[in-house]
Design a protein around this nucleic acid. Structure first.
Length: 549
RNA sequence: GGCGCUAUCGUCUAGGGGUUAGGACGUGAGAUUCUCAAUCUUAAAACCCGGGUUCGAUUCCCGGUAGCGCUACCA
């Protein structure tokens, strides 16, 4: 075991699909451990399965990690002292180690066919025995084996498992021991010449001087085989830490049918990266005796402790993630308003409010417009509105657009605290963009308010006050409400509910002091979807309702 | 089937031989702003079962049960 050495850990995903949240958690724990110990965090791409590996997943995986705030010191893109960092570039190394093992008789050629092996396995299962390899080729004379190979007979290479129990230490689970009875000689190189995962992973980890192997506990049963490889090769065995599985609400391994499972999914939902990191860190780990829930990245690095990681599997709780996300959304909004030095512009929107990449911002804007214009009787199938934003609209930082962005900023700032996911903002803000007077006047949800005795009077009075105010400055807003209050005697709900129905079609919604200015300002902007002014809304409502002046 | 891992409120967890078993999410109730959301207060809610060790076990040991994983010429 490497002593006094600097910590070196690695995250070794296969680029076969979207980065799964369980793997992200593994990456995070490796990274936190490395950063705390002042060690090295390595990214290695495990693409020995050439059939399923794709280059695009490799790039995406790196982007996902960066988005989350995880950086690496060595990897396929940045290089490092122990290249290559992609397994497919390393085949000859694996082969030469295998030849060495054969020469030292620690491994041997196996001529059994796949069908033969499968038959043995089935039989063992039927007889309720451990399905081990029979050991048939174990004692074939090396010279004989060479002859058969030369004759063209296909052969895999198997490792000779020692005759004693294999034990290793696991930081999360303590000492683990496997009887050699249950670990039968594993294949390390296929008859095709392709080496097998359980073998290459050892060589890679040893070559890269990995000190701690932190990975998912689905590897725990493989570990004895790997330890045997270390020992056969005479390489130092690292420390292991096997992290528990993340489950869905039904206690099955978290998968797509449970909803979001990839980093990309969470990003699209408007989960902030720091919220995701915070939540994931708390899934299977908690600091001693602490009641803290919200941790900055720095706090996580300082307080993380591999020894305190829980061995039991954890169910992924979306509700708690959303709650944490809300905490971070609020924090962002607060820091935005308490830092007046930052102009409320496109840039600040990009960098402070929407923690998203450019493409994401564009998509969120699009969604905002798309969804809102469909409200309220939405047919979600009709989801393709003009993608005006893509046409460089966002990139043109003209003065006019600065106003638009400022307005969007206010819009998001008004509705974001109502949301625990950023993608919810669009839905919340819908009434600003879409106003349907007929719906407002006849929606059954509004019936109770509409039928109450004071309602008509309040609506009429508000309408008159508003329409006869020549200039509606925001500081006059309260005086309008005071007027209506005085003339009708209505207060509280009786006052505000009818007016809100008239203006946004629903009796509940944000504070008028913020909402009305926002609507008025929006109505004067050149937006792709016209925001109806208060005046327009009042008039349309009156027409739909048959309201007389 | 075999082997392995795991087991504190519904969920994430703290704790630990004697505790009113703590916190958070969620849930219920109340307060509050015109409403909803948010916020605040508050309530209900847990040591898987059986043996052993011990004066005492939720905590330590053994067994059972259940869940999950592995059982490949996948990673």
């Amino acid at each position: 075991m490497p002593q006094n050495d600097k910590v070196r850990v690695r995250f070794a995903p296969s680029p076969t699909g979207q980065l799964h949240i369980g793997n992200v958690r593994t990456a995070l724990f490796n990274w936190l451990f490395a950063r705390q110990k002042g060690g090295t965090f390595i990214l290695r791409i495990e693409d020995t399965d050439l059939e399923r590996s794709e280059a695009r997943y490799e790039t995406q995986l790196m982007e996902d990690l960066k988005w989350l705030g995880i950086d690496w010191d060595e990897g396929p893109d940045v290089g490092g002292p122990y290249p290559p960092y992609r397994q497919s570039d390393k085949m000859d190394v694996y082969r030469s180690y295998a030849e060495r093992l054969i020469k030292e008789q620690k491994a041997y050629y196996c001529f059994c066919s796949a069908e033969e092996l499968e038959r043995d396995r089935q039989q063992a299962m039927a007889e309720q025995r451990q399905p081990n390899y029979s050991g048939k080729c174990r004692n074939i004379d090396p010279a004989e084996a060479e002859r058969r190979r030369a004759a063209g007979e296909p052969a895999a290479i198997r490792l000779r498992i020692p005759e004693h129990p294999i034990r290793f230490h696991d930081i999360v689970r303590g000492d683990v021991e496997f009887s050699n009875e249950v670990v039968s000689d594993p294949i390390i190189v296929r008859s095709s010449g392709m080496p097998v995962y359980n073998y290459v992973v050892v060589i890679d980890d040893a070559d890269m001087k990995i000190t701690h192997v932190i990975r998912g506990d689905d590897h725990i049963s493989n570990t004895p085989k790997q330890v045997a490889v270390y020992e056969a090769l005479g390489l130092p065995v690292p420390e292991f830490a096997h992290l528990s599985t993340i489950l869905g609400p039904d206690r099955e391994r978290l998968s797509k049918r449970h909803g979001a499972t990839s980093v990309a999914n969470f990003r699209e939902m408007g989960i902030l990266p720091e919220a995701l990191m915070n939540y994931l860190a708390l899934l299977g780990w908690a600091p001693s005796g602490s009641n803290k829930e919200i941790f900055t990245k720095e706090e996580l690095i300082r307080e993380f402790d591999l020894n305190r990681v829980t061995p039991s599997p954890a169910i992924f709780d979306f509700q708690k993630l959303y709650w944490i996300n809300r905490q971070y959304i609020k924090r962002r909004l607060v820091s935005e308003t308490t830092q007046p030095a930052i102009p409320p512009s496109y840039d600040s929107f990009l960098h402070y409010l929407m923690p998203l990449q450019h493409a994401d911002v564009r998509r969120h804007f699009n969604q905002l417009i798309q969804r809102t214009s469909l409200y309220p009787r939405a047919n979600l199938a009709v989801y393709s509105l003009p993608s005006f934003i893509d046409k460089g609209w966002l990139d043109t930082r003209s003065v006019a657009n600065e106003h638009v962005f400022k307005w969007f900023l206010d819009l998001v700032a008004l509705f974001a605290p109502y949301s625990d996911r950023l993608d919810e903002v669009a839905r919340q803000a819908a009434p600003v963009f879409h106003y349907d007077a007929g719906f407002a006047a006849h929606n059954s949800a509004n019936a109770e308010v509409l039928n109450s005795p004071q309602t008509l009077n309040v609506m009429r009075t508000f309408r008159n006050s508003w329409l006869h105010q020549p200039v509606h400055e925001w500081n006059r807003l309260s005086s309008i409400f005071d007027q209506v209050k005085m003339q009708t005697g209505a207060t509280g709900k009786a006052l505000f509910h009818p007016i809100r129905i008239m203006l946004i079609g629903s009796h509940s919604g944000p504070d008028f002091n913020k909402l009305i200015p926002l609507i008025e300002e929006g109505s004067r902007l050149q937006l792709p979807v016209h925001v109806k002014s208060i005046r327009e809304r009042i008039n349309e409502f009156a027409a739909a309702q048959g309201l007389k002046p």
